[in-house]
Design a protein around this nucleic acid. Structure first.
Lengths: 221, 221
DNA sequence: GATTGCCAGATTGTTGACAATCTAGGAACC
DNA sequence: GGTTCCTAGATTGTCAACAATCTGGCAATC
């Protein structure tokens, strides 16, 4: 008898909470690349001691989002152009792998529906001219795709890569010049992914990401 | 003027050192899956306080090698059969992705040579009947392949997956009944990977990993 | 006899303080 | 004038002690 399954995690631990908060801060750009994370300040901000804060930071260090220099402190990782390419290259590998699993295991329809929801939301955001919301939906599209694989390890890797993607984007939340184009492209991708042959689907996904990185690199000049 | 490049890391930080040590202990099975990591004992063993030790453990938690339960402690992650399949499925995605990069960027010959070294070492170990050494070489083969991609993110993901692979294997260091077979299979794989068409190379790699997981699952019944 | 309540011991979570190290700035020297 | 050295301040690294929580066993109760 389950009685009350309200608390699968009895209580998110403090370091987990702080780690999530920091990750989010890095992702949204509230903490800029290269910025140092002063322990005393942050500890005061979260109203905890430096101990739990340091533990949370070490987690993000192992995820590659932060990097630590002994006796100097921890900093938000800066992404070189080479890193940007690596993020997208790795995303391409992970996402195509996830897609392969989805197609192999016949979750085509269910995944198609979920992606349709996301695209619909993206379209509504685009209609309102809300660039950031479109960008959010864009990322969510790819996250949903990987989640559909049901592979905890692919999902975990993807989560980190999406944080890094946001770091790449920085202030500019979308590299598209026209929001409608961004929507249409994802709708086309959704259709190709879930209707075409696996080989074509994977090619389309790769092309989509190649385009993205190309636009991003161009803007960064 | 470089003068002395002996210390690219001025000094490996304490938590980094402890994290590596713990990772290695989990990998070699000195810490068994499910085992609890008592903070006081480990801190005494490493001759440090509980602070740095906890920071190191948090790193491995974020890698998925350990998992923490609030007010209960941290434990070595136990791998279900489903996890074993997920590890190998993800390895297949990562390794094929890395192979793709290697072939695309024309590091074929250099990679072939490196892999040849590994296979040669594997053959020597097999000749001496040294199962564990063959198993080490086996893992090294796949690690070298991914390293050849030059992608920091693929390499990082692979490192974690290899630790988990070792955890899957547990006591039995190799699932092959005959060491020579293991060597021959890798030599064949090496040749196919670096001589056949990209598509065939990837298929061969996937088949190789599918075989591995099948043997592993069979032994685990 | 089985269940419940409770307590002692042990373990984890958190904290504040102390030690070690680095950075910035100016003074002394060539 | 430029370089070197040194000091003060701040920041990180580490530690030991305190508080909160959990585990296991024993006694009381139905």
């Amino acid at each position: 008898m389950p009685l009350s399954d309200q608390t699968p995690n009895p209580r998110r631990s403090t370091v987990e909470h702080i780690a999530d908060e920091l990750r989010s801060a890095v992702m949204t750009g509230r903490l800029e690349p290269g910025e140092q994370l002063g322990e005393a300040d942050l500890a005061a901000h979260f109203e905890v001691s430096r101990g739990p804060l340091r533990e949370a930071m070490q987690r993000l260090v192992s995820e590659g989002i932060l990097h630590a220099i002994t006796n100097r402190g921890v900093f938000v990782s800066e992404l070189t152009l080479e890193d940007v390419r690596d993020v997208y290259r790795t995303r391409s590998v992970i996402e195509r792998g996830a897609l392969e699993v989805v197609l192999d295991e016949g979750h085509r329809e269910a995944t198609a529906d979920e992606l349709d929801d996301v695209v619909r939301r993206m379209r509504r955001a685009a209609a309102k001219g809300d660039g950031p919301a479109v960008s959010d939906a864009d990322q969510h599209f790819h996250e949903v795709l990987v989640e559909a694989s049901g592979s905890p390890r692919l999902i975990r890797a993807m989560r980190t890569l999406l944080v890094e993607t946001r770091m790449c984007l920085g202030e500019l939340r979308t590299t598209y010049t026209d929001l409608e184009t961004q929507v249409d492209e994802h709708e086309a991708l959704r259709r190709t992914i879930l209707e075409a042959t696996p080989a074509k689907a994977k090619s389309a996904l790769q092309a989509h990401l190649d385009d993205a990185v190309e636009r991003l690199v161009a803007k960064r000049t």
